[in-house]
């Protein structure tokens, strides 16, 4: 399972992005996190070659949300054979934008003294959920009404054993804010909002039937292609 940070936001476990055999002995694994309003790329570099590695640098291809390193990649020392170094690279969202397929795809180039290597990684969209994503209740009601039902996506979230208060708390620590909660015929209906770094709002209705582990998530957004990535984030947060 993932590592809980002090803020309580969910971080996926690191996965291997670049195996050593594809990068002349350099292995890169990593994950993405949002901590105190800053997006970070947590990267582990392992030298599985027989020579020392120096002169590291990193560059991103343009991507859907303008993710870009906010500082140069700095490894404190050269990487000796069999050595591992962990780095947290702060990211900004003001880099060049180009819509990627899938939307959350990030193409990365890493250089060292041996060569330049390329890999792709998929970031969870919740790293883009900003801290001021709580929509005014009146605006929520108007926006919900305004977005046509064709733009509504509905999903089932299965095997989730949390009550609605636990769900609200868990989501809030990931910048998904519950604006209203209603109980209708025994079901809890949570109305929630979140906002992406590029200003796109996402409105959600989460139905929880007491005693049932299956939730219904309805999402309304003016950019409906985002919905499936929001679902992935809900599932990761609620099941970890």
């Amino acid at each position: 399972s993932g590592v809980g940070m002090p803020t309580g936001s969910y971080v996926l476990p690191k996965t291997v992005w670049l195996p050593a055999m594809k990068a002349k002995g350099l292995e890169i694994s990593g994950t993405f996190a949002r901590r105190m309003g800053t997006i970070q790329m947590d990267v582990t570099f392992t030298n599985k070659a027989m020579q020392i590695m120096t002169d590291f640098a990193i560059q991103f291809n343009r991507n859907s949300f303008g993710l870009s390193p906010a500082a140069p990649l700095q490894l404190a020392t050269p990487l000796s054979p069999n050595q591992t170094i962990e780095v947290s690279l702060p990211l900004s969202t003001v880099g060049p934008v180009m819509k990627m397929d899938p939307l959350n795809n990030l193409q990365v180039a890493v250089k060292n003294n041996i060569d330049v290597f390329y890999f792709s990684s998929l970031y969870p969209i919740n790293i883009l959920f900003v801290e001021d994503g709580k929509m005014e209740r009146q605006v929520f009601l108007a926006t919900w009404k305004d977005i046509p039902s064709d733009n509504e996506a509905q999903f089932q979230i299965k095997d989730c054993h949390l009550n609605s208060d636990a769900v609200s708390n868990k989501l809030q620590s990931n910048n998904i804010f519950t604006i209203a909660k209603r109980n209708v015929e025994g079901q809890d209906m949570l109305y929630q909002s979140m906002k992406l770094t590029n200003g796109i709002w996402i409105l959600a209705e989460l139905r929880i039937q007491p005693g049932s582990p299956n939730f219904t998530l309805s999402l309304k957004c003016r950019a409906p292609e985002i919905a499936q990535f929001v679902l992935q984030s809900y599932e990761a947060m609620l099941k970890n």
Partner: peptide, 20 residues
């Protein structure tokens, strides 16, 4: 929370979603 007159509106939304 301050009653801003929207409580009823959310109740209506929830009701309508449950019985479309």
């Amino acid at each position: 929370e301050i009653d801003d007159g929207l409580d009823e509106a959310f109740s209506r939304l929830a009701e309508s979603r449950n019985n479309p």
